Amino acid sequence: MSTAVVLASSGGEFTPPGAELFDFPPLFAGGPEWLTKPVLMALLGVVVTCALAWSAFAKPKLVPRGMQNVGEMGYIFVRDQVARPFLGKDAERWMPLLLSMFLLIWVWNIFAVVPIIQFPVASHIAFPAVLALSVYFLKIYLGMKHQGPVKYFTNLIPPGLPKPIYVLLVPIEYLSTFVLAPFTHAVRLFANMFAGHIILAFFSLVGYWFLIENPTLLGAPVGVLGVVMTILMTAFEMFIQFLQAFLFTMLAAMYIGSGLHADH
């Protein structure tokens, strides 16, 4: 993406959106620095997630209808595609956490295409980082509880290899498990939402600039292209929003499973 697009017809300059999209002042003058729109949207996401769960499961019927149908479809999806493949017989026990995590992240992501809100909460690294660190510490706690405080760490290393191999393998395995895994867990979600938000903002601004803000005969096709790409990228971004919620929850289930049971 170039840093600027110059309009040949009018001399005006179009500047594409950048990192300033993610800078928010406090909600009110004199308010705390941390109380910004992303924080408010994160809390709203929690409320929406709780409301969805309550409307689906508060008064379950033998023959599900309405929101209970939707809730049960979501539950079955997370159970069969996320929990059971990695947790086996422990899947049902961890379903409240995994289902809540999946719904919350999905709601946070979908805020990017909701009118007026139009901001994906997970595009601020703090939010996926908190979730990833929570899973990380839970994994270590479960590993030390179920495998023993010493054996948990030794179980990470496959036995029976030549001793010189361990000089290289042990640091790599520990670095991957205790540093890279939680880092990539958070950054994958953050980076996708960050990039997707910039792309949507860019094409939206192209359409607005060339068709409304500074319309010209030569710029009109570019503006139409911007509108078309905005529609297409919005549909694609909605798929990515769902996919990233699924992948984050799937990795969480995998990490919890590695704490409950030895990898080797």
Results as ranks from 00 to 15, higher is better:
Lys37Val: 09
Asp23Trp: 09
Ala112Trp: 06
Leu205Ser: 07
Asp263Gln: 13
Val48Ser: 00
Tyr136Asn: 08
Leu205Arg: 06
Leu138Met: 15
Glu33Tyr: 08
Glu72Leu: 10
Thr234Arg: 01
Ile256Gly: 10
Met238Val: 09
Met95Pro: 02
Ser123Arg: 04
Leu21Ile: 15
Val47Arg: 01
Leu62His: 04
Leu133Trp: 04
Val114Leu: 10
Val70Asp: 14
Ile125Leu: 15
Cys50Asp: 07
Gly88Thr: 02
Leu43His: 07
Ser134Leu: 07
Gly160Pro: 08
Ile240Ser: 09
Ser204Phe: 11
His185Asp: 10
Ala220Arg: 11
Leu104Gln: 10
Phe190Cys: 05
Val46Asp: 05
Gly30Pro: 13
Ile105Phe: 14
Asp90Asn: 11
Leu156Tyr: 03
Lys163Leu: 15
Ser10Arg: 06
Lys59Val: 13
Pro128Glu: 00
Phe153Ser: 03
Cys50Pro: 12
Val130Asp: 02
Leu21Pro: 08
Thr36Phe: 04
Leu103His: 13
Phe22Ala: 06
Leu205Asn: 09
Leu87Arg: 01
Gly207Tyr: 00
Pro32Asn: 04
Leu200Gln: 08
Glu92Val: 15
Gly11Val: 00
Pro115Ala: 10
Leu43Pro: 09
Leu98Ser: 10
Tyr255Lys: 06
Phe190Met: 05
Ala252Lys: 04
Ala91Gln: 03
Lys151Ser: 08
Leu52Ser: 03
Pro96Arg: 01
Val167Ile: 04
Thr36Glu: 01
Glu13Arg: 04
Tyr141Thr: 08
